[in-house]
Structure formats: C-alpha cells, structure tokens
Design a protein around this nucleic acid. Structure first.
Lengths: 251, 251
DNA sequence: TTCGATTTGTTCGTATGTATT
DNA sequence: TAATACATACGAACAAATCGA
C-alpha cells in the first residue's frame, strides 16, 4: 500500500475539479454578473496558479453545462436567459406542425403566502416559510395553451412584487437572473396526463373532462439548490411537449 | 482579403473533428462491435498520424454523446444497451413515488406489412417499403402501464421474426445492437395528452375516456439516421414521465 | 482601413499518476 | 511485477476572432 495517506476522510479532487468548484462558488456568490465576462484563461491560470490547460478543462465542463459561454476573441461569459440558444432549453412546448415560438405571458394573480407541507421536499423549505405564488397564462399564436402556477421562496426575491413581475422584460428566469442574481441552470420535469380542474380547463378553452398535460417542474441553481416549484397545465390540442435529449447544437 | 482560398465550397474542419468523423464512420460500418474495445489512444494517434491529445478530444465528444465509454486502465469501448447507466436513458417512466424499475415486456403482435405515408417523413422511407410492426405491453411491478407500437424498416433487420423478437434477452435496443449492429444513440420524443383508443384503454385498465400520455418517438443511429418509429400510451395513474435534462452522473 | 493587442481555439509534445490485466 | 491504457497537468506555438486605437 503505497498511499495509505490517501485513505483519509477527505476526497482528493483533481486540480481542474477544484478549479471548477472555485469558479462555481464565485458564480454562486455573484462575483461575476450574468452576461459579464469572467477573467481570461491566462489571468485565471495566474490567480489559481495552475496551467492554462487546467483552467480550460474546468471551463470546458461549465460550458457543457450551459453555465458559461465561450466566444473566441471575446472572452468567457456567464450565460444569460436572454439568448435564443438558452430560451428553448427551458421551454419545451412546440406546435404539432413543428412550429417553435416563444409564448406571450399574462399574469393572472400574484400573492404572498405561507408554504404548506407540499413544498418542504421540493423546495427544501420549512412549512410556514413565506413564498410567492403566481399564476400565469401563456399564449402561442394568440391562443391560450399553457397555465402556470409558480411558487418561489420569498426570501430569495427580496423586493419582488406584482408590478415588478408583470412589467418585466423577457422571461421569468431572465428576471430571476438580472434582478436577483439567481441563475436557473437546470430543471427537472415530471409529466402526466389528467383532466385539469374546471377553472383551468376554462382558461385553456377545454372541456372539463378533456385530457391535458400536467407538468410538475423544479428549477435549480448552482449546487442543485432548488429555487422554483412550478405546476403547468398544457392543452395538447395543437401543441406538444418536445423531449430531445442531446440537442446540443454547439458541440 | 487575406483568405480568399478559404472561400471554396469545402468546409475545413479542425483535425479532431475529422478524427471524430472517421471514428464515427468506422462505428457506423460496424468495424468495432458494441461492447468491444476500440484501439488505444496511442494506436489511433499513430494510425491517424495526429497527436494523442487530438485523439482524446475527438473521443471526449463521443463519450459525452454516450457513443463510447472510457475506462481507465482498460480501454475505450463501444457503449452497449445492456449497461444500467444506459438503460434509463431511453426509458423515462418512473413511479410517482420515485421508484425506478425496468419494465417487463410482453409482445402482443408481430407482423410484416407495407409502410403507409405516415412513415415517409419520420423514418425517411418510401410508401410501400416493407416494415415490421410490433405491439408490446409493458408492466411495472406486475401492473400494465405502457402500450407500445413499434415500426421499423424491415431492410435493416434481415432475419427478424416473431420468435427472435419475443425470445430476446434484454431490451429491444439491445437486440437491435447485438444482432443487427444497429446502435440507437439518440431519441426524440413528442408528448401529448389524449384518451387512448378503447382497446388500448382496456389493456391499460383505464376507462375509455381516461386521460393518458401519448408519446411519439423516433430513434436514431449514427449521423441522425432514423431507425425506429414508436407510439406509446402510458397510464399515468401511478407513473409519470421524467424529463431530466442534464442528469449526467459521470461528469 | 489597417494594425496591434487580447482572447479563445487547435495542435503538438512531454511527464507523471492511477487503474487494469 | 511489468506492461498497457486512460487521466491529469504542464508548457509552447500558432491560428482565428474580436476590438479599439
């Protein structure tokens, strides 16, 4: 046994993993804002006192995870929720005819309340924690297609109110990112088929017994921290949910 | 204009992209069978007359695409559809209680027929081409959960018959791979909610008007060549469809 | 428009570590 | 134990894209 020392409780990561972790920590701490460039590879190599190749390998993984974005000649940037590339990564509803368009969102309600036990697991928050609860109706080509119920811990969005939410430019995740420094980088969705509650059916223009797609989503930021719980009802009369594992255009 | 030469019709790929393409061609041609090791990095570097780093970069991408599988000290292998890691990549139905198990499949029908126009687009085959058409019932924990209708071009599966299909070990894609050298490496699924046809509802133990999940899948092999068309009906009473972009355990 | 500085992209080479057989 | 194969890390050189002087 040559390396009995390594048997300690610590896990020894490769250098590039350590670098990746430290970069991720800086991102989570908001050291570099979204859309901004992080230091150049050569500068990071100096700071971390490692070779440029090690920096590249760390950044390679963050780019593959869509957390960073590299551009030759310009620099490396914190990915934003305003780029076309990113938008459809978190929106999976497409027309059955193959059309792809971004929805127009209309806020239906906004309130602050206390979390019930439902969110303890998915949002890792205690019962009674203050949350925002928001309802939206999304239209595609003018027709209502999707109804959203969004739940987020109020603590993460200090001054959020109805006005700010409704008057935002761009997407909801763009708002989280630009105003609150919260970066949604991953979502997990669970889909099932069911008949929507009558009020939802009415909003979507469906018969009460009509089948609809129910989507339960949890959105995560760095280090698998959950930040949003969302339940959606989708009318699949003219639209469907597209699941394309490995649609990595930029590989 | 310094580089008028580059304006030719050829696209100049980086070396590692060329290497990747040539490796992929060898895979598509069946040069290395699934589960087998491909030549070592140093040997490939000799063959292609490039540095080992360039080989690594090409293989990096193929590993990220789950086409190859690297194991330190052993070699680099053609990924198979028998590894636990891979299995759930193509099977997305999980229990609502979070349970994950592989289904038990029961073949209901098997026949050879001529393709109608429906498959021209999705399978890139002409109307009238011979196809196999197979129906399956999948059970989880003993209960029927999913009904499958599979369509594949007969030309790709020369000696396939009812016996071979029903008596296979392992998964359907495992059969495609082991017996016919056809490697499914990517699927695109389109989900909607609808009431299943009465015979399907009966099989799944659903009321005729009950909502179910309909999944239309196209499976692809190398170079985005479609090889299978599949329509599934899922009872989402106790199960749901899990969409987890970026569940890359091994990163 | 041109040029130079900066930054990422590609390719090569070498050395050493670690896992497998 | 030795040989083999992949993993990590370093360094160097040049190409290509970008941007501002």
């Amino acid at each position: 046994m040559a390396n009995t020392l390594a048997a300690g409780s610590l896990t020894f990561n490769p250098l590039y993993k350590e670098v990746k972790i430290r970069i991720t920590r800086s991102l989570a701490a908001g050291k570099w804002k979204s859309g901004e460039a992080i230091p150049s590879e050569s500068r990071l190599a100096e700071q971390f006192n490692v070779s440029i190749g090690t920096i590249r390998k760390a950044i390679d993984e963050l780019v593959a995870e869509r957390i960073l974005l590299r551009q030759q000649g310009r620099g490396t940037f914190v990915a934003t929720h305003t780029e076309d590339r990113t938008l459809f990564y978190f929106f999976h509803i497409v027309g059955k005819d193959g059309s792809r368009e971004l929805p127009v969102s209309e806020m239906l309600s906004f309130d602050k309340r206390k979390a019930d036990s439902r969110y303890e697991a998915s949002l890792s928050i205690a019962r009674g924690t203050k949350i925002f609860h928001i309802q939206n109706l999304l239209k595609l080509a003018g027709a209502p297609v999707l109804f959203d119920e969004i739940t987020v811990p109020a603590a993460l969005f200090p001054d959020l109110d109805e006005e700010i939410f409704a008057q935002r430019d761009g997407t909801i995740y763009g708002l989280y990112q630009a105003r609150y420094g919260i970066n949604v980088i991953r979502i997990i969705e669970r889909l099932s088929a069911a008949s929507p509650p009558p009020p939802v059916a009415a909003l979507l223009g469906l018969r009460v017994t009509a089948p609809a797609l129910m989507i339960r989503r949890v959105a995560y930021t760095y280090n698998d921290t959950p930040v949003e719980h969302r339940v959606s009802w989708v009318s699949t009369e003219h639209h469907e949910y597209l699941s394309d594992l490995w649609k990595n255009e930029a590989r």
